[in-house]
Design a protein around this nucleic acid. Structure first.
Lengths: 338, 338
DNA sequence: TGCAGGAGCTATACCGGTTTATCAAACCCA
DNA sequence: TGGGTTTGATAAACCGGTATAGCTCCTGCA
């Protein structure tokens, strides 16, 4: 027999389909003796539930979704997603729940996907990344009644469940370190201002500047691309009063910035210190290797999966879980200003 | 009404469930007038098929799977997968088929996933990457009768369907260019020899060497890591007769190699030309920017999806589709030997 | 005029599970 | 000993579609 069904097992065990279902799902309704007998037979026949059948009956599909709305070309460089995915999967695998992944161009397409998933019952819940200010996805998901957890964006009231790390503290740990080295002119090459985490980082720097005695601490926003990262760096280093340290919101921009510094004859870390707000193999491949903020992205994903499963189990509660703080990994690109 | 079922539409249209099913699936059995009426009502009620119900009845789940067996840390750097995924999705989206993605540690785990997917009917087919010599996955998938398409590995008889580019030609286009520049000592820092594509590249170089008058053309295998790429480069550049050009099987290794050259005071491209057998943003971020082989990875993925769908539709035929040849993108890291 | 054949549709079984109503037997305690 | 509760199990309904056998009515052709 190719793929045994629950009915086959029932026949073989001399019981009803219902009894087999109870036994296999570990719920009351059968005696321990019968349960064990059924389990053994199921094992023997190497029975596995038919996911569609189960989904139809139990109205849950044991599958969650994740949509990444970024053009593919900016995606590949970032180990962030690969690690995040691995973490999510590790969190899901315990319950043997599968993950649907989709890469789309923009948020509009992403919302379309949620609508389709909801109406076709393809997922039990979704994981959101890159939360923006006044993110339209939040309301949409609430309207669809699709359980969701946001990665990286703590929400206020009426928000979705979330898993977050403290961007504010992270930024502080960077600039406090730079200030301690003696830097007073620190620039921040940020990402797009529509992301909440970008806003939080900018605010953190602005708030900390007076306390740390920073002369000038501008945050300049970009689209996260290497091109804009390079352009802004070129501009910063062309000023008469150039910064002695630059913090980049991503590893790619930091590398692009390092390239500009070299091209302009600005020595790193002699004349300029560089810090990347994200760690990866990229930062380690460089010469000098870049000082970077390391986050346990895998753990991030794992926790997101956990929170999502809890949210699916009980949609009423809204969990906001804070994960371990990121730590600064100091390498060769930071030194006291000359 | 939250989510209308086919029965709701039937009631509203005053016909039977069967008629509605016929109409919605565009198959004969209803008149054009009735069909149109049903379609309009379905549209009005914004009906969408319940994927599980459809899967159960039609015994296909409109979902395909892809497992990547690599430790997550080596994965993130490669835009390859991000582009590939986007391409696959674009190929699938036409039929609104979803993609399940899984990242696992090794091939054993990967095979486990295939078994589970097959027994739970979670996917209609799978896409394989990184085909190895005597790959155990091939036999396993045939035993499971799970339709599959291999990316990057043309198969002989009894093989699975595939989508491939000509590694041999690709390697030739690189070494012929280097030979034309005047290089006679070319080294090849390859990936793991267990991958079929690694073997093909090595063989292509070996076969072409005499014809191109190469004095020495060693292929040295690695595990694709930056560390081994750097180590081998260090060894190559320490020889009394050092190569004047090095071809790296991946962008990460090429970047690591460039770092070693700089650290040893070997100027690129003055004393050493560098070519990466894979293009990405990484190669463009470097100074000098690296000459690299560009493949249309997106298209690769799109075609893989297409071939997979055809294979699912008719498992008897085995399609082997060749995609566009990769082209060499010349940047700043190659020049005639001094 | 009669009948074959096809178009158009209905009724129903079915896919493989879960869930619920029901029931018999055993058990409990006064 | 008898009535009520608990336990272990069954049969049947159900989830939302698809597939199919069969029915009715209309058409065409001899």
């Amino acid at each position: 027999m190719a793929r045994p069904t629950i009915a086959d097992i029932a026949t073989r065990a001399g019981v009803s389909k219902g009894a087999v279902s109870f036994a296999l799902n570990g719920r009351p309704g059968v005696s321990d003796a019968t349960r064990e007998r059924i389990l053994k037979i199921a094992e023997q026949m190497s029975w596995r539930p038919h996911s569609a059948a189960r989904a139809l009956g139990a109205s849950r599909v044991d599958s969650v979704g994740m949509v990444i709305a970024r053009p593919a070309r900016t995606l590949g460089v970032e180990p962030f997603f690969a690690h995040l995915l691995s973490g999510v999967q590790s969190g899901l695998s315990a319950e043997s729940i599968s993950l649907q992944l989709l890469i789309v161009e923009d948020t509009a397409a992403e919302i379309e996907v949620y609508r389709r998933w909801a109406s076709e019952h393809r997922v039990d819940g979704v994981i959101l990344v890159d939360l923006t200010v006044k993110d339209p996805r939040v309301d949409e998901l609430k309207a669809l009644e699709l359980p969701a957890v946001v990665i990286g964006g703590r929400g206020g009231k009426g928000a979705l469940a979330s898993v977050w790390a403290d961007d504010r503290d992270a930024m502080l740990s960077i600039v406090e370190y730079l200030a301690a080295l003696g830097h007073r002119r620190i620039a921040h090459v940020a990402g797009t201002p529509i992301f909440q985490h970008t806003q939080r980082r900018i605010r953190a720097l602005r708030d900390a500047a007076p306390r740390l005695g920073l002369v000038d601490a501008p945050s300049l926003t970009t689209d996260f691309s290497d091109a804009e990262g390079a352009a802004i760096t070129r501009k910063l280093l062309s000023q008469s009063e150039r910064p002695t340290a630059i913090v980049y919101d991503s590893d790619v921009m930091a590398v692009a910035g390092l390239g500009v510094a070299m091209e302009m004859g600005v020595s790193v870390p002699g004349d300029l210190s560089i810090v990347a707000f994200d760690d990866s193999i990229l930062t380690q491949l460089m010469h000098p290797a870049l000082t970077a903020l390391s986050r346990d992205t895998f753990e991030f994903g794992r926790q997101a999966a956990e929170v999502l499963l809890e949210t699916i189990a009980d949609p009423a509660q809204v969990i906001n879980r804070r994960t371990a703080d990121p730590v600064l990994t100091v390498r060769e690109s930071t030194a006291p200003p000359s």
